[in-house]
């Protein structure tokens, strides 16, 4: 479904002299594929390029070299013709919702702007449905983002992301800012939703246990390169030293 081929991305070094062409390589030779219905976990140190990669996939930025295609088409043109079929949930939920919108407006917006024209009543129903799916109370509809807790806000972001029934969702460290019980609840939710709606996930995180419980495949990103890609079931058989170190350093809790 999603294919990333030999993608390179670098940024100009910020502290360098003006007009210098010193670049900082963020991503080097990134290639991988995600099949429909799969859940790929991407794990890497903060600063290793995972956010950059997600921005490239979401077409918020362009790679310097290489290609990103979805169902065979370049991601740019695919997004134009398949509006609403790709969505994203970001790590920072405090800036993910327009602070001037009410919760109802935020969730209804992607539905209203989608290719299909729904009347007001249908949209209202759909919004209520989504709230129910995510175990949120109706009272939240009239509130503003800053009045909600982190766990609630992130669930609203997920509701908004699935509002248009997308086929592909990018989760960019979506659970990292939540506490443990919120994480557990939302993980369960994501598993259910994926099955119900047959979605494909790209799950970026720095927490291996979370990836292990949600994803089918995991990819390790180290200093801008993919150093290992392995099925989650075979996690104990990783070869790469960085991946091994990562697994060993997980604080055990049993």
């Amino acid at each position: 479904m999603l294919k990333v081929e030999s993608v390179y991305k670098s940024y100009k070094k910020q502290n360098s002299v003006i007009f210098s062409s010193e670049k900082q390589e963020i991503l080097q030779d990134i290639s991988f594929e995600i099949q429909r219905g799969e859940c790929l976990g991407l794990i890497g140190e903060s600063g290793s390029g995972n956010s950059t990669l997600s921005r490239l996939i979401l077409n918020l930025e362009k790679p310097d070299l290489g290609e990103i295609t979805m169902e065979g088409k370049p991601i740019q043109s695919w997004l134009k013709s398949h509006r609403g079929e790709m969505s994203v949930v970001f790590q920072d939920y405090t800036t993910s919702i327009n602070p001037f919108f009410t919760i109802k407006e935020s969730i209804a917006e992607p539905i209203r702007r989608s290719k299909f024209k729904y009347d007001k009543q249908t949209i209202d129903h759909m919004v209520l449905d989504l709230l129910e799916k995510l175990h949120l109370s109706r009272q939240l509809l009239v509130r503003h983002p800053h009045e909600l807790s982190g766990g609630q806000l992130q669930r609203i972001c997920i509701a908004r992301a699935i509002a248009t029934r997308p086929h592909f969702i990018v989760f960019d460290e979506a659970l990292s800012s939540l506490d443990v019980s919120a994480q557990t609840q939302i993980l369960l939710l994501l598993k259910q939703l994926k099955q119900e709606m047959n979605m494909t996930y790209l799950f970026i995180a720095h927490d291996l246990p979370t990836i292990a419980s949600l994803c089918s495949t995991v990819m390790f990103l180290y200093q801008g390169r993919i150093v290992e890609e392995i099925a989650v079931q075979k996690l104990s058989q990783v070869q790469n030293p960085y991946a091994k170190k990562l697994i060993d350093s997980v604080v055990n809790f049993d």
Partner: peptide, 14 residues
């Protein structure tokens, strides 16, 4: 229990 649940799958795999 919640915390155990989070790392259960991972622990089993390892």
């Amino acid at each position: 229990d919640t915390r155990k649940g989070l790392t259960k799958a991972f622990g089993e795999l390892i």
